[in-house]
Every structure is written in structure tokens, then in C-alpha cells.
Amino acid sequence: MSVIEVSGLRKSYGSLSAVDGVDLTINQGEIFALLGPNGAGKTTTVEILEGFRKRDAGAVSVLGVDPSTTGARSRQFRDRIGIVLQSTSDAGDLSVLETISHFSGYYSRPRNVHEVMEAVGLTSKSKALVRTLSGGQRRRLDVALGIIGSPELLFLDEPTTGFDPEARRSFWALIEGLRISGTTILLTTHYLDEAEALADRVAVINKGQIIEVSTPKELGGRATAMARVQWKINDERKEELTTNPTETVSRLASQFDGDIPELQITRPSLEDIYLSMIGGAE
């Protein structure tokens, strides 16, 4: 069952075409990552789906609703989605608990406030004023506000920008937890390893068009790309490109009779594939 259904989506700002014929289907319960350089049309696409922007052309259905709807139907639509935007930079004079409780009052079937605080790891900070939180803790609060209404669909906009590696890992674990609860997630990110760690499927967007939609493992023919086997013999580096690295390695193993010096097998990373796709599109 699809949660988001987009076809022929277009949006221009003056003479600049930001989104130029995007088609997209996102299924229930999946984590879908939208990748692309700045100005590729990522934000515009997502903001149209969130109902923040109006489209020029195309058909859009999110949870069976046209997100550009207004009035009472728009309220009902927003009751079913969660949006995690970039952090706000307001004075933060409310406590974590007060902020989450207040937002829970906006929804028809809010989650339990304490359960949500626990889920995002802010229970020990519940009485702390928002302005005393670290960047990572603020981001966790942003997620708490995004999921407090028990959304069927969650939008995550560059959730870990500015995080240190450890904070990112623990944030990913939090998102994994949401997957288990069956929430559909649309993620936009700059980080390829993030998409690889979290997403079931990724779409690469550039110049307002979707270049490819695939799993992170298969994007750009990655799964079938040649592997590079490297080793050392008499202080000399050797390498071989092969479709069957196992065969190469077992051949080398018998040749060396055991340990192969400085053996390395690499396949193109998602980043290599992505950069070649973006570069190829320029």
C-alpha cells in the first residue's frame, strides 16, 4: 500500500524550474531517503508533500489526501503526519516536558508524553529548559515533537546535520525504533552513510528530476559493480578488478599458501556511486 503517490510534479520559481516532473511512490512502513545536492529540488519536493508549498502541476496524494488542501481537511491531514524541520532557535524558556505536553494537546490521538521522552532519550532532561540542551538533545526534542501525535508518516529533514559521529549513531538507533512501530519515514539527508544505514530505498534527485530509485545496495548498479582486490607481493602493490572476488582470493590463498599480505577487497561505496551519478548529470 502506498503512502505517498506523486506523478508529474512541477514547481518553478520565476524562470528557474526547481522540480521538473518528479514521479515517486513511497510504501507504507518503509524508510525512504531522498538524496541530492543543494538546489536539486529536494526541499521543494518535500515541502510540497508537507503542504508548506503549492505545486504548479502534477498529482500528489499523501495518505490519500492532497496536501495543498486548506481549512478543516488540512487540520485532519496534519493530525496524521509528523514533521521534523531544522531546529528552531527560539529562546527556549519552556522545559522539555512542558514543550512536549503542550504539543501533545494539538493532536486527536497523542502518544504518552513520558513514553515519547523515553523513546528519544530525554527522560533525564524532562525538567531542563530547552535553551540548556545541547544540539543533539535539541534534535531529539525536535523528533519528540514530530512523533508525539502518533503520525502515520514522518518527515525528517536532515536530522543529524552538525552531530558528532557518536550522536549520529544513537540517533539512528532512535529512527530504527520508529521503523519497528510501523511509521513510514521520508528522510532527506546529505550523508550517504546515513541513507545506507537507515533507508530501505533511496531516490537520487538532481536538477529537479529523479535520476534513480533503488535500494542503497543496488543503486547505480552497485551490487554488480566490479570489486577491487588489492594485495602486496615483494613490496609491490597488486590489484585486480573482478566480478568474482571469492575466486581471486582463493587463487591467491593457494598461491601464498596461507596469509595474503595486506589483502583488501573494496566495492564502490554508496558515496562513490552517488557522486558519479550527480557528476554524470551535470
Partner: peptide, 18 residues
């Protein structure tokens, strides 16, 4: 205007609060 600049309003806009 400050709440607008800080992103507070955009966040509220994404909720069912009218």
C-alpha cells in the same frame, strides 16, 4: 517576526493547530 525568523511559526504550521 522573531518567531518567524526562529522557525517557531513554521513548526506550528506543520501541526494541526489552526
Amino acid at each position: 517576526p522573531m518567531e518567524r525568523e526562529f522557525g517557531t511559526l513554521k513548526r506550528l504550521r506543520g501541526t494541526p493547530m489552526p
